[in-house]
Design a protein around this nucleic acid. Sequence first.
DNA 1: CGTAAGGTTGAATTCGATCAAACCAGGTGG
DNA 2: CCACCTGGTTTGATCGAATTCAACCTTACG
Lengths: 247, 247
Amino acid sequence: MRPALALLMRRLDTVTVLERQDREILAALPIEIAAFEDNHDIVREGEHRDRCFVVLKGLIGSYKLTGEGARQIPSFYVPGDMPDMQSIHLSRMDVGFRTLMPSRIGFVSHAAIRLACAQSFTLIEAFWRMTLIDASIFREWLTNIGQRNALARLAHVFCELFVRLKAVGLVPDHSFDLPLTQQELGDAIGTSSVHVNRVLQELRKEGLIVFREGRLTIPDWSRLAEVGDFDPAYLHLRETGRTVGTR
Amino acid sequence: MRPALALLMRRLDTVTVLERQDREILAALPIEIAAFEDNHDIVREGEHRDRCFVVLKGLIGSYKLTGEGARQIPSFYVPGDMPDMQSIHLSRMDVGFRTLMPSRIGFVSHAAIRLACAQSFTLIEAFWRMTLIDASIFREWLTNIGQRNALARLAHVFCELFVRLKAVGLVPDHSFDLPLTQQELGDAIGTSSVHVNRVLQELRKEGLIVFREGRLTIPDWSRLAEVGDFDPAYLHLRETGRTVGTR
DNA sequence: CGTAAGGTTGAATTCGATCAAACCAGGTGG
DNA sequence: CCACCTGGTTTGATCGAATTCAACCTTACG
């Protein structure tokens, strides 16, 4: 099967159980692949879309701008994710998406997805479920930003990325590529880049992370999870025991 | 028709277009009604549910607790909303729901909703769309809490409640019942209740709100929307022009 | 009355923002 | 090869927003 669709399927497998015929329908989806450099807008706020995209490689961030020009990154998207699934039912985009590193993207038309959904209730469930998990992640981020201090917030975000990447098999050892700038991290956790810098130093000093040359290593998972007050339940992954962490 | 279902239908009308047969299916939904006093847990974090609920009267807040015991209210739910729609596809609740004032609730079993969805693709769309709008609201709240100061945050939340209540016809003039404590407001916008108190005074001093005896009045909508950097696009209401504001 | 829940106020403190400058590495072009 | 630029990181100093703690007030209510 085309590797792009294999990846999407693998992701769907982490959230639900697919039957053979669902896999066949998915495998037949027409998908158009494109590569983008760093900092490329894939979808802009306010647009009307007629297709969704799947992350195949790299890292995508959603973003919203306030009237003051500040930017919030409400969430990150890793390979296998369909970040703008919502565009199927909400015509106007309330959020934009851009690459946070060089990325490969697959585009699937709304029409094709609708057709697939019409053929299988299980697929509807699977896609719907993915969007509900997104919402769950937003709730967790709200709690993160609203209630925890900057140190815990950053630790929490690192933990989440670790678990999500691991779930799709992209964390062989205890490290993964994460070429985010401190500004981008700040936009995600709602602090200034200067403060991110200081918090990063703190995390490093405590031996909780190694973060350099665009790569994050987590030497001691359980301690980082402790500091970040992290419980992966909100990610609603199947077989959490197997996919999570190191213990 | 039973008023409970009429309200749900009215809400669905604000987000999508229903056909006659969809209305008939909805009207036949078995619904079980109950009244709850203030501060009553309807759903607790971690539970497994076999039914959804519709807010018929009152105000519901979702909430999450951190390891430190802090509480975040990720969003409010007004009459017509189905706050735990997600429970259909995500068995474990990652969030709890409780009344923020005396409320009337209608319960509909998952089985009944699934059956209704099996009969009408439009209904699936409508429900799915509601959950996607929820997610959109979470994104906006993330931006609100992450990027705006406490004054704008609070103004923004007030604006949202105003628009959402107005959309279901619960804001006859420029005021509505909102018997929230300052603690609860603080849990929603991620600040202490003491600071909420000060911000409220500021908003009052500027003549932007009247907030007493559990009722909020917005004398000058456009100025409050300005202060709160509020743009209702993220609510994805149909005919926004008609339903929003005062101009 | 006395109690409880919520609101208000003040003072001290802390967290994080802001501002500004220095630093550093990788690329580019003379 | 060096000078220069650029984007990002680091550091220090200062400022402001919001927290914390504590006291006090008001109202509702048994």
